Amino acid sequence: MGVSVADDIDVRDISPTAWRLLRVAAGFGQREVESEVEDIMQAHISMLESDTRGLSEARLEELFSLYRDELDDEQVCVLVEHF
Rank of each mutant, 00 (worst) to 15 (best):
R23P: 03
L71M: 12
I45L: 14
L71W: 09
D13V: 11
E61Y: 09
R12I: 05
V80A: 13
L48W: 06
E61G: 10
E49F: 01
T17P: 01
D7A: 10
R68V: 02
E81V: 05
V33D: 10
E36Q: 15
I40Y: 03
E70H: 13
T17G: 05
R59D: 11
L21E: 14
G2S: 14
C77F: 10
V80G: 12
G54E: 13
A26H: 04
V78Q: 12
R31Y: 02
M41G: 08
D72H: 00
S50A: 10
L55A: 11
E34T: 09
Q30E: 10
V24H: 03
V11Y: 01
P16T: 09
F28H: 14
A18Q: 08
L66D: 11
M41V: 07
V37M: 08
D39S: 11
E32G: 15
R53G: 04
D39G: 05
T17K: 14
V33R: 11
M41P: 02
G27D: 06
A25K: 12
S15Q: 10
E36W: 10
G27H: 07
D72P: 01
M47W: 08
I9G: 11
I9C: 09
L66N: 14
S56I: 03
D7P: 07
E32A: 14
R23Y: 00
A25W: 01
F64S: 08
R20M: 04
I14T: 11
D39K: 09
R59W: 03
V3Y: 13
V80K: 06
T17M: 15
E61R: 15
M1T: 12
V33T: 09
V24K: 11
R68L: 00
I40H: 08
F64K: 04
G29R: 15
F83I: 06
R31G: 03
E74G: 08
L22G: 02
E38K: 14
L79C: 00
E57W: 01
F28N: 02
T52A: 11
S15D: 09
R53T: 03
T17A: 14
E61F: 05
D51V: 04
S56R: 13
S65R: 15
V33M: 06
A6F: 03
E70F: 00
L21D: 09
E36G: 09
L79W: 00
V78M: 08
M41S: 13
